[in-house]
Amino acid sequence: MSGNRAPLVEVIGLSRRYALPGGRNLQALDNVSLSVAPGEILGIVGESGCGKSTLARIVMALDRPTSGNVLLEGDDLFALSPRELARRRRNFQMIFQDPYGSLDPRMSVARIIAEPLRLLPERLSRAEKAKRVAAMLEDVGLRAEDGARFPHEFSGGQRQRIAIARALITRPKLVVADEATSALDLTVQAQILRLLRDLRARHGLTMLFISHNLGVIEEIADRVGVMQAGRLLEIGPTAAVMENPREEYTRRLLAAEPTLDFLEQPA
């Protein structure tokens, strides 16, 4: 999947240390390097505290690394001036875990989705904005009229659709999804995964998809990276990693995942 095209994102030697009270340090990220090709979905899997969310935040320039670089289309994000960085934000957007916390309860859905449109270089007319929001709402399987409603009128899955619409409205080149389906019911999770696959087929989405759930990663990712304690243990095509894990930790993770295999045992 990667191969000959130039990578869209390159993460080079990324480390992030947090100072804890008492003079101790937490090494949240330890020399992580990876790249994402255009049109690829890279899954990152790991347990809590493995650094996967820190990685997401740094790639989204919401936090700065202690050392290392993030290159987006060859440009170092952290060498850009704040103004230039703000200008580039239209190219990378994020979907969050908690669909109840990621939408401002006081804003109408249309306003929420339109929020990132301010990142576009051109000033859009009110009518143009409304048109794009309506089209986006339908793109994620909601109705254009839903824009006038407020977040609390929607279920968790519908809210996550709204969050996806917001992340895609500027037609970003890269979308980072941080546990985007973890707070959802199983059947809703399956719908959202279907939607993401569908949007990818239609718009050629490039994604960094972060999850603790191997099953979800397998459903959506072309390649997967396994993280533990801030380090990227292994990375490779999803099927290869799942079928033939190189690392002992990956094997443990795969074995711990509850599956219906237990049915094979006599009850």
């Binding site: 934000r89 957007q93 990621s102 929020e115 301010r118």
Partner: peptide, 26 residues
């Protein structure tokens, strides 16, 4: 601490805008 503040930051909003648009109404 809510994620919609992060989302606002992703939309390029500065601290003043975030405060006026998201914090005070809430």
């Amino acid at each position: 601490a809510r994620d919609y503040i992060l989302a606002a930051r992703m939309a390029g909003e500065g601290e003043v805008t975030i405060t006026l648009l998201h914090v005070i109404p809430n």
